[in-house]
């Protein structure tokens, strides 16, 4: 990223980034976030991430997988948030590598809900 040269520059940069992320969300690709805090990794999040990436590649599913921090659902780790184009984000808990495969085959491809969906239980604060 380039240097931010002024306060106004920061604002410009933010708008650019927001636009590109909006574009991404309007695209055909599925957005996947895998919680990757220490505890998530300890419960297997790395393998889950790898499985999602490889399963999507196998099936040529357009997907953007990123790591993120703790989502707060310790009881259900590893947790994965999936945003399909035109859908609200859904958080899946208790994702084992096996279930990750299922997630791709059933939800990504077939739109079939899996067990272990975690309802949003917090109010988001947008700055």
């Amino acid at each position: 990223m380039e240097k931010i040269k002024s306060l106004a520059d920061l604002k410009k940069k933010r708008e650019e980034l927001q636009t590109s992320s909006q574009l991404l969300s309007q695209s055909e690709s599925i957005q996947v976030r895998v919680a990757m805090a220490t505890c998530s990794i300890a419960s297997g999040a790395k393998q889950v991430l790898e499985v999602i990436v490889s399963e999507c590649n196998k099936r040529s599913i357009p997907v953007s997988v990123t790591q993120t921090g703790c989502m707060g659902y310790c009881y259900a780790e590893p947790t994965v948030e999936v945003t399909k184009p035109g859908h609200e984000p859904v958080v899946f808990g208790y994702i084992t590598p096996l279930k990750a495969e299922e997630l791709v085959t059933k939800y990504f491809v077939g739109n079939e809900m899996l067990e272990g969906v975690i309802p949003v239980n917090y109010e988001k604060v947008e700055l």
Binding site: R33, T68, G69, M71, G72, N121, E123, K124, V125
Partner: peptide, 10 residues
């Protein structure tokens, strides 16, 4: 819940 400190976490 309201996420202020954790607004970006996850």
């Amino acid at each position: 819940q309201i996420r202020i400190a954790l607004r970006n976490c996850g």
